[in-house]
Design a protein around this nucleic acid. Sequence first.
DNA 1: TACGATCAAATTATCGATTTTTTTTGACCG
DNA 2: CGGTCAAAAAAAATCGATAATTTGATCGTA
Lengths: 226, 226
Amino acid sequence: MLMANDLPDARDGSATQRAYRVLRKMIVTGELKPGEKLKIDGLRGRLDTGASPIREALSLLTSDNLVERIDQRGFRTAEISAQNFDEILKLRCTLEDLALRESIAKADDAWEEQLVLAHHRMARAKDGNEATFEDLHKLFHMALLANASSPILLKFCSQLYDLNIRYRFLAGRALNYQRRDVSDEHGGILAAAVARDADAASSRLLDHYKMTGAFLAGLLERNELS
Amino acid sequence: MLMANDLPDARDGSATQRAYRVLRKMIVTGELKPGEKLKIDGLRGRLDTGASPIREALSLLTSDNLVERIDQRGFRTAEISAQNFDEILKLRCTLEDLALRESIAKADDAWEEQLVLAHHRMARAKDGNEATFEDLHKLFHMALLANASSPILLKFCSQLYDLNIRYRFLAGRALNYQRRDVSDEHGGILAAAVARDADAASSRLLDHYKMTGAFLAGLLERNELS
DNA sequence: TACGATCAAATTATCGATTTTTTTTGACCG
DNA sequence: CGGTCAAAAAAAATCGATAATTTGATCGTA
């Protein structure tokens, strides 16, 4: 069963959904800086909605650990720190290893096809639209894990992905993501997964994370983040 | 540093906080049944607040996986199933093992004292107030893990604890929790933790979970849940 | 100068009313 | 009968206004 690569449009869904998507992107991409106070009134202007949808969107973002809620004192974006990054990296390695192995253990044709497709879409988008590449990149990584019949685990992985990618955006130009041939790494992971080789897939995936992680951790230690 | 065992009072905090605590307890204890529709208006009467705090509380509960939000169609409590329970149990074993080992690895006097204290409070409450025992029980289990300097991991564990305990409440009288001497098991875990024996502590903790888990899983398979 | 109290401005939290969306009902037609 | 459609009812989402709370500035006092 082929599915549309449904990246939601900016006007889909309720006002809350829209606010949620926009705010999340703004936080993940660093448009809203770590620790920044999120004043409802200010955001109302930028997002062109009332206070209620914004409040609700911020509540939802709280659960993603992207926003912190301080009772009676409003909302602010989550702080960043070297420890926090380290924690995210470690947890990701543990949980994605778990999920990937289960996913491969239950491998079937449908999953494999979805995976190949996700990879193709990501590869194709690489040269083109910079913004959607990141979305497709996430879809590829989640497609790897998708066959693990463990919704809670997948949700955790998805959250950790977003928390991690935020650091990559914050590193911005400092992180020469293109220098390393990430494309090859993705290809290697895909190949191992399709070959049902859980050990190879897992070690390649984890190396993929640790490589970027080590670089980012270095930046963080030296406080070179914007 | 001794801390008060601060179980929040029913009138502490904002209306949202109150609604959040009350609703969570109602869901965890099964007063609100799995899959039940949560109509804002209906809850307004029961909780004696406006719609806004309730909406916001429900949004927060969504992130705890206790409430499901369906866009434009309101909220309902999370469904239960044998798979879901199985998933929770497995994830709990993995994550608490991780957290407990890190907690013990970094063991210090302050942590040890907090732990002993949490155990004592739980043990003392056992005969008395049934309602607060569960709260203290959770505090003890979280105290075991608390020394792992990994807030995200601890948050995951806390969430999974609540999801799990919900099943125990739903099993209600069917689960003869008192039959097994849980008190001994807690004592054993505490002793191993205080002795800094990570292997023993972890295996005792996981057995503690698996024991209850196996029984509950049996009930679920046979659909004997209320 | 440092400290604490007090008041005004800013901001958040909450409420009640309105708008939008979904669900239900019941009449009508094949 | 069974299914479709439209109107009515119910419920959710959103808005604008009000109440409660925090923050920041000012002033008097030791």
